[in-house]
Design a protein around this nucleic acid. Structure first.
Lengths: 143, 143
DNA sequence: GGGTCGTGTAACTTTACCTATTACATGACC
DNA sequence: GGTCATGTAATAGGTAAAGTTACACGACCC
């Protein structure tokens, strides 16, 4: 199954936007992501509606981050995407008449529930500023 | 993203097979799952190769479970499917030159790693017999 | 041994969803 | 007014599971 890469793309974009004051155009971002300007605008729409970024049109326009990186968590970004499915597996029939299938569903559901709590908990605890700090760790020393 | 329902289907089938001595044909199973006999044979192939079920051809043939339900874990069934991806999200470029993207990937990877451990741990601890017990809990009392 | 029933598999189609592309309207600046 | 940029609809592409068709192989029954 093809994976949804929007979350990691958005994080990538936001961190770059945080590094500069100048607005970035969708086209610039698209090149950075190896993607397409329209795709970029599409996935940025949620962040704009969530109040994390701003878009200006015309000459000198583009996208700008309008919150500090310690005010945005990975969970915020995930929610801006509309909280897409986290898991690649699930069950076909949500309300089966068969008791056996009900139990199987309950079992899978329980696992998914536990893992969801774990993942969203991690996302919620992770601020963009922490990823920024990790970037600095990866930077080779200057001079 | 469409979800992979093979795991829950296999569990469902195995538990029904454990309830009877007579072999079940792919067609019977397909009706049970609201699916197709060829699809059933396809997803059962891994269980057969893993030594959990046996298939006999011809008159009176079909699928039979050849292990006790307390000898099979959900993890075994999952592995029989070839350990498919658990998560619907991921990153596009596994080895990006960009330091920022590297950090984002590491962050996502860390979350996925933690959640994978949690999920596979739960799968490994869950025997089919435990799901059977849950089915009994759901049964209305007799008489 | 021919007929029927069942698995085993290959090949193709369908389905669903993210991704990519095209096209065009709208707004902002020079 | 022209150009640059976002906003969005409409359409095509890519991928993987699910569904379908077709047929070979093997086992049982008469």
């Amino acid at each position: 199954m093809r994976q949804d890469t929007r979350l990691s793309r958005l994080l990538h974009v936001l961190l770059h936007m945080a590094q500069t004051d100048a607005p970035m155009t969708s086209q610039q971002i698209a090149v950075m992501l190896g993607s397409n300007a329209v795709v970029v605008r599409r996935i940025m729409a949620g962040l704009r509606d969530g109040g994390y970024v701003e878009a200006e049109r015309g000459h000198g326009g583009g996208w700008r981050i309008i919150r500090r990186t310690d005010e945005i968590t990975v969970l915020d970004v995930y929610r801006s995407l509309g909280s897409p499915d986290l898991f690649a597996f699930g069950f076909s029939n949500p309300k089966p008449p068969c008791l056996v299938e009900q139990s199987v569903n309950a079992t899978i559901e329980d696992t998914i529930q536990t893992a969801t709590t774990s993942i969203l908990g991690q996302f919620g605890a992770l601020r963009l500023s922490q990823i920024e700090a990790e970037v600095r760790d990866r930077m080779p020393p200057l001079g």
